[in-house]
Structure formats: C-alpha cells, structure tokens
Design a protein around this nucleic acid. Structure first.
Lengths: 225, 225
DNA sequence: CGAATAGTGTCTTTTAGACAATATACG
DNA sequence: CGTATATTGTCTAAAAGACACTATTCG
C-alpha cells in the first residue's frame, strides 16, 4: 500500500514534585519552527520502534532515567492537520512521573532543559499545541491520584506519609488534613507498606518509612479537597 | 522534511445497549488481510482531515448517525510496528456511545456490519489487535459511567430511571438496587431533569420521563456493585 | 522546656446498601 | 383484585471531615 507522507512523534510530559510544587520538564527550542520557545521534549518514532519505546528512549535522553520502573503512560494523540508548520505531524503524548531527581537533568539536550512550575506555564509561551497537551496530561495525573496509588511514583523508594501527602498537595494544589490523610493512607490495603525504618529528615518526631504496596486501585478513592 | 511512509487510521468502538446487553458494532472483513474475520469499523485519515473528523465520518458511514450529539472520545493509539501486515499502520481508537437505534445499521458497509454482544466476543476472533482495542474501550466506558453522566449517551432523548439503570446494569454486568439507584440519580444535581411527562412502556406504574442534565461529573460517583 | 512533626481517638455529617411500605398503572 | 413497576421512607454500616489530644524528636 502507498501511504501519505506523515510524521509520527512521541512527546513527553515529564512531571515531578520539587519544593512542594508540581513541575514539568520543558526544552527551549534551538531551531525553527518556534525557535526560542518552550516545548515539551519529544522526537520522531523510528521505523521499527513501538510508540512506548520511543517515549522511553526520549525520557532516557532527557533525564538520564532509563529504568523500567519509571511510570509512563499514554495520554492522547494530537493530529490536527495544521498543528506543525513543517507538514503533517501526528503526536502521541505520554505522561511520565518521576521522583525529585538527586542528579541534575543530563543528556544531550541538557543545556536547554529546565524544570518549570506547572502553575506558571502560560498558554501562549509553548510551541505547537503543547499547552493543550500539557493541560490534558496534568488533568490525567490529577484524576489518577484519586483512585490509583500513582502518587508513589513521585516519591523515592522509601518515603514518609508526610512526603506522600506533599505530593497530593502539590499536584492538586490543595492542603490536606495531615491526620485524616495519615489514617486513610495507612488503612487502605496494600497502598503503602512500612519498611520498619524511621527518619527525622522532616523534623519533629521520627516518621515511619514506607514503600509502595501492591495495590493497583484505591478503594475507597482519595478525595480532592 | 521527509517522513517515512506510514498509514494513519481511526478505528471505532461503537457501543450500544440492546435487549439489556452491551453490544459492539463489528464488520466482517471482505478483503485480506484477515479476510472473513470480525474487525472494528475504521478507515484511513485523509491528508487534510483531523483525527476526530475521520472518526465522525466513519461513524456516519457505518451507522447513519451524523449528529454532533453522538458521544465520541479518543481512547488510545496503537502503533506496534508489526500490528498490520501491510506495513506500518498506526491506529487511533475512538469510543462512540449510541442509543439503541430505531433504524437498522445503514451505509455502504451495511451488509457486513452486525451488533455483537461484548461478552461473547472472544479474543482470537478479531482481526489485527482489535481485541485489545475493544477491551481498552470497554474498560474506559465502564470507568466513565462511575463519575460522568455518560450513561445517558446510551439513552434516547427521553428516558425513565429504569431505562437508565438498565444501561448501568448492561455495561457493568451487575444488578443494581432499583430503589437506591432511583434515589441516588434523582438527588445528584443536574444529572437528569424531569420533562414532566410519564410513560408506561416499561409496564406497571407510570414512570416519569427525564432528559440529561447539564452535569459533567457526578459527585458523589456511582458505585459499581 | 518549647517548637515541630507524627500518630491516635472522637465526634458529626454524608453516603452506601439493605429492605419495608406505599403508589399507580394494566388486565 | 392481582401483578408489575415506580417511588418514598427507614435503618445500619462505612466513610469523610473537623479537630482534641498524645508521642517523640531536636535545640
């Protein structure tokens, strides 16, 4: 069969929580179109590559995180005929959730990659239809925190309940009652599992350390303030 | 820019509720590959067409339903390099929810289109990776019934609470308590609005007729048995 | 000790779910 | 009247949300 010429790209919305705020990794474009504008990292799908493989490859290139344990999920596909001035380019958007990285962003594009507060990204500043993609991905993340244990994807392997609560507060932009949150999280079966250790890194009374449990859905769900 | 040759298709999971069962519209393929096998309706995206435009065009061709009021949403995109033996074809899957059609399925492919119980579609019978697409779309529909007023998309413009309950029972495959369901639906703000009319088409005491309200999310959500 | 954070207990309101009882049609 | 479905009411258990209180660290 003969097909129309068409570009197929995977774009990434890489989110993290740093300093209590939800942040996204953006690249400053070095070449036209949209030269000098902020954009989501991404790249073209190679001829024999699966879509998710492309997304993981780009994720590794931008962040140095090549682990299979990084949460990555497809969000949606954007294909308006005029969304890219170079021609017909269809973009499959992926959402990645990464913990606050101890190492700085590495990789070939490191010089132009920056963490930006999601709340401060404004619509007109992003290239292509990336603001729409970002909005859809962030909404997906906010919704999934309610009924899945996904918040742990933002945390290091061992974390305290306070740190987990901080993730919810940053992603939702809402303060949560520490006492009710603690009770709810620890009573939901298999959400988090105590490691036995404690830490005082948050100050005050030592807090128990937990790692993620085996639950895939939360019953009952967490509720947004 | 020069792009690799690539096919871009939109495939449709068209669901309805008929005779108390969730059904999907399938096509029997007349040509290779997978000749004679059941498949989801779909077609290639034209050069100047938006993805959703393709989906709506295919929906109209298969069902005769060209209305903008038909619920249609993107589910996911499937792009494994070997998913189509003809070459690289990436498929964007859409989910459409239609009311029990008074008119039979019309259109150019009518001869080969049939409603099939979702529960009776078995994995090996569908062409390409369409079973996976179907499973993902059905799961999406099941999940969205919980927190959105989407069930009304399966109903005619005016419906009774029993009929709405029938939709939930068919999609979820679970019986629901008629009395608790009635109370919950009618107490959720803007989910359904009484039209003032009544009907006895379900037998017994006349039931009030409702049409869909303006709510976009359900608080609190419906709960699956 | 005082400040800070962790964790437990208690109370009220809301909701889920089971189910009794009443309402209004048809034959 | 008998049967079928609609609709309202009542009760119990679970969960949400507000908030008092206790526990354990550090300086």
């Amino acid at each position: 069969m003969d097909f129309e010429p068409l570009g197929l790209a995977a774009d990434l919305v890489i989110l993290t929580v740093r300093d209590g705020r939800l942040q996204v990794l953006l690249i400053r474009r070095g070449i036209a179109p949209y030269q000098g504008r902020w954009a989501l990292p991404g790249g073209f799908v190679r001829p024999d590559e699966d879509l998710e493989t492309t997304a993981r490859r780009e994720l590794a290139e931008e962040t140095g995180l090549s682990s299979e344990r990084i949460h990555l999920e497809q969000v949606a596909t954007y294909g308006a005929p005029d969304r890219d001035p170079r021609g017909r380019v269809v973009s499959v958007a992926y959402l990645a959730l990464v913990p606050d990285l101890p190492a700085p962003v590495a990789g070939s594009d490191a010089a132009s990659a920056h963490w930006v507060d999601v709340a401060e990204v404004d619509a007109g500043r992003l290239a292509f239809d990336h603001h729409r993609i970002l909005a859809d991905a962030v909404e997906r993340a906010r919704a999934k925190l309610e009924y899945s244990p996904l918040a742990t994807a933002f945390c290091p392997p061992e974390f305290t309940i306070s740190e987990l609560r901080g993730v919810y507060e940053a992603v939702w932009g809402t303060p949560l009652d520490p006492r009710n949150f603690h009770r709810k999280v620890t009573k939901t079966a298999d959400f988090v599992v105590p490691t036995g250790g404690t830490t005082t890194r948050d100050g005050g009374r030592p807090a128990q350390l937990f790692h993620r449990g085996t639950a895939t859905t939360l019953h009952p769900p967490m509720t947004r303030g």
